[in-house]
């Protein structure tokens, strides 16, 4: 996750707090999505950006998970995420994100 995006998320948390804030990630590549999700949960693993050592533990979902899909109007979802849904391995992504949320709850 690049340092600019980390700075935006950190700013949002500083301004609004973590209450009611959810991060939705759209990367089609499972590894990229995983690193991004871990960064907003446990902090920047490369210790290079504004989230280095900052464990925000924000609830994190992928745009292709059913929890997100069901709250977006179907036509909008199809237009904006339909292609990504075909490209990505949705099962693997779902598994990765459930694990990260589980780990965040446990620790």
């Amino acid at each position: 996750m690049d340092t600019e995006k980390q700075a935006i998320i950190k700013q949002l948390v500083d301004d609004m707090g973590t209450e009611g804030l959810v991060v939705v990630i759209g990367a089609a590549d499972p590894e990229v999505a995983q690193v991004t999700a871990e960064t907003v949960t446990f902090g920047d693993p490369s210790f290079a950006g504004p989230l280095a050592g900052v464990s925000l533990r924000l609830p994190v979902y992928h745009i292709l998970e059913p929890e997100v899909k069901k709250v977006i109007p179907q036509d909008v979802y199809k237009e904006q995420a339909g292609f990504l849904e075909l490209v990505a391995n949705t099962e693997e992504i779902g598994k990765i994100f459930r694990e990260i949320r589980g780990k965040a709850r446990e620790t």
């Binding site: 996750m1 990367a27 089609a28 590549d29 499972p30 590894e31 990229v32 690193v35 693993p45 490369s46 490209v87």
Partner: peptide, 9 residues
């Protein structure tokens, strides 16, 4: 390095 598999995507 967290940059994914570019050709595969």
């Amino acid at each position: 390095a967290g940059s994914g598999n570019v050709p595969l995507t």
